[in-house]
């Protein structure tokens, strides 16, 4: 159990009479050395539920999450305090994450006090200023202001200043740039990647925007209805996805180039007969899949290495299991 963060077979179900599987038997691990894992999927695919579980904000119905070998749901208070300090969240909308009645320095001071980062107030001030400068903000412009007086890009960078201040080991970033303008987006991502390398921080990066994932690199996990359908190196998976859903997802990124417009017309997903939707021991993508076979309705495809690919590249699709000729799909 020397692994850094291990997510083991977590399942989260909401509702009892008509249960919704938000997360369905998901396992993955995040290595310690400044690595990036991108968690990608459409809304409702379970991305944020997984983030909440890893942060310890909700407990999965089954499965467990281990941080440095210990379950994060342990009741040891000292361990929990340490965990909170080492694993930090960066949220989508920093505006709703800050107390609107607190000035920025107070928000940052709370982190310093809570985690006892410094010994005296003057040192605290110096640290805050240093962290603000690290994210390209001018302390004299930011300190003394309330969150609503800052622009969206500034607010998100204050959030990053907190990361710089606390220097966690792991960042759980839930859509950190989806509310940031196009021009500022690259700035925020660049700062994140810089910290990553400089302070040896790993991150789990949750996004529905595949171009962001591609920009960050690292590893990618593609979710569909709470299950992992494909994972592997970001560059490889996004350039030659194996799973039919991953292929659809990646071909649907709006490429900012009028010469590369979508050519084929996409069909709307057909409705599923309720008898089919009840059964979860099948491929959940079967009703939308252009390559659907009989087995897809009967068996849940296991997540396994794909033939002829790196051992880190996994796909959950019957097209690639056994000796079926899945290679016809790859192009």
């Amino acid at each position: 159990m020397s692994d850094f963060l291990v997510v083991q077979n977590i399942t989260q179900v909401f509702g009892t009479r008509k249960p919704t599987f938000a997360v369905d038997d998901v396992s993955f691990r995040i290595p310690e050395r400044a690595s990036i894992v991108n968690l990608v999927g459409e809304s409702g695919s379970g991305k944020s539920t997984i983030a909440r579980i890893i942060l310890g904000l909700s407990k999965p119905k089954s499965g467990d999450v281990y941080y440095k070998g210990t379950s994060i749901f342990t009741r040891n208070a000292e361990w929990q305090r340490q965990f909170r300090c080492e694993v930090q969240a960066v949220f989508q909308d920093p505006y709703s994450a800050y107390n609107p009645f607190y000035k920025i320095e107070r928000i940052l001071n709370i982190s310093i006090r809570k985690f006892k980062l410094v010994n005296n107030p003057s040192e605290a001030k110096a640290r805050i200023e240093e962290s603000l400068r690290a994210v390209d903000l001018r302390p004299d412009e930011i300190l003394g202001k309330y969150p609503h007086q800052l622009s969206g890009g500034q607010r998100q960078r204050v959030m990053l200043a907190r990361v710089h201040l606390i220097r966690p080991r792991l960042i759980i970033a839930d859509e950190p740039v989806s509310m940031v303008d196009a021009g500022m987006r690259a700035t925020v991502l660049n700062i994140l990647m810089e910290f990553q390398a400089q302070y040896n921080i790993s991150s789990l990066f949750i996004t529905h925007d595949l171009s962001t994932a591609r920009y960050l690199g690292g590893e990618i996990i593609i979710l569909y209805q709470g299950r992992i359908v494909e994972r592997g190196e970001t560059i490889q998976v996004t350039s030659k996805p194996l799973h039919p859903y991953a292929q659809l997802l990646i071909s649907s990124i709006p490429i900012p180039d009028p010469d590369k417009r979508w050519r084929e017309t996409l069909q709307f997903a057909p409705e599923v007969k309720s008898s089919q939707s009840q059964n979860r021991e099948r491929c959940l993508y079967a009703e939308r899949c252009p390559h659907v076979m009989e087995v897809c309705w009967k068996e849940r495809p296991p997540l396994q290495t794909s033939p002829g690919k790196e051992s880190s590249w996994h796909v959950a699709c019957h097209l690639y299991s056994g000796n079926l000729k899945g290679s016809s799909l790859e192009s």
């Binding site: 622009s151 500022m184 987006r185 690259a186 700035t187 171009s211 920009y215």
Partner: peptide
Amino acid sequence: ASIPNQSGEHVEGLAGEA
């Protein structure tokens, strides 16, 4: 120029704020 592009190469954000 500031759009993160397909190839994943480094891009600079727009400096400053509107």
